[in-house]
């Protein structure tokens, strides 16, 4: 296993399927997300949180799959060690890909991003951390990854925040063309959820942007 990332709550490893499961059932490599114990909190809270979050992330990925969202398969939920073993989506990050293709292709990719988010919201899920770093292009498809901040929430507010975060992320990463790009995202979104839903969520986003509570969140960039 190779450590590839470490966030505040989890360590992310890359490994062979066989290495994890002991049988060469799949040739693919896998991602192991290990929610690590925290010494600063009492054991009761520590175990409860890590367990809840591991289960929730697995449930969310499962439900997203059912609704046709391109996201990783969950291979195992290990509630003893609080580990999630998932499919490794190997491809190109949209963050770089979008900058390297002509405008036409860019906008088509953005429309596909919008369709994926539309399906996710249709499933009653918000991602919570939509950035083009969390989107991978593989085999002609756009995949959403890293559901660590995702939640079951079908309120307009949550959807508005979800899309707003993406808009802000695109603004900082793809600043020369993000306006057209985000417009294409909304077009794809409307294809799945309808024009009415698009209008509603756009109005919500405006409200979110205008109100004082909203803060610049720089984990967007």
């Amino acid at each position: 296993m190779k450590l590839i990332a470490q966030g505040a709550e989890a360590k992310i490893y890359e490994a062979d399927f066989e290495e994890v499961f002991g049988v060469p059932l799949l040739k693919e490599r896998v991602i192991v997300k290990h929610r690590i114990p925290k010494r600063y909190r009492i054991k009761e809270i520590d175990v409860k949180l890590r367990k809840e979050r591991t289960v929730r992330e697995a449930r969310i990925l499962h439900r997203a799959k059912e609704f046709g969202v391109n996201c990783p398969y969950v291979y195992e939920v290990d509630l003893r060690d609080m580990k999630l073993v998932m499919e490794y989506i190997e491809g190109q990050r949209l963050k770089e890909l979008l900058e390297s293709v002509p405008m036409e292709e860019r906008l088509e990719l953005c429309r596909e991003v919008g369709r994926q988010i539309g399906k996710l919201h249709k499933a009653g899920i918000v991602h919570g951390d939509l950035t083009t770093s969390n989107m991978i292009f593989r085999g002609g498809k756009v995949y959403l990854i890293d559901f660590g901040l995702a939640d079951f929430d079908s309120t307009l507010e949550a959807r508005g925040v979800d899309l707003h975060l993406l808009r802000r992320a695109m603004e900082s990463t793809h600043y020369t063309w993000f306006e057209r790009g985000f417009e294409a995202v909304l077009e794809g979104y409307a294809e799945v959820l309808g024009e009415e839903a698009r209008k509603e969520v756009e109005e919500k986003m405006k409200e979110i942007e205008s109100r004082g509570r909203y803060r610049e969140r720089s984990w967007l960039s």
Binding site: G7, A8, E9, Y40, I45, S218
Partner: peptide
Amino acid sequence: QETAFAALVEVTERAVAHT
């Protein structure tokens, strides 16, 4: 205290990890 403070520390740690 334990519940409230664990939350405060968690949000702080996230900011540390991010920045």
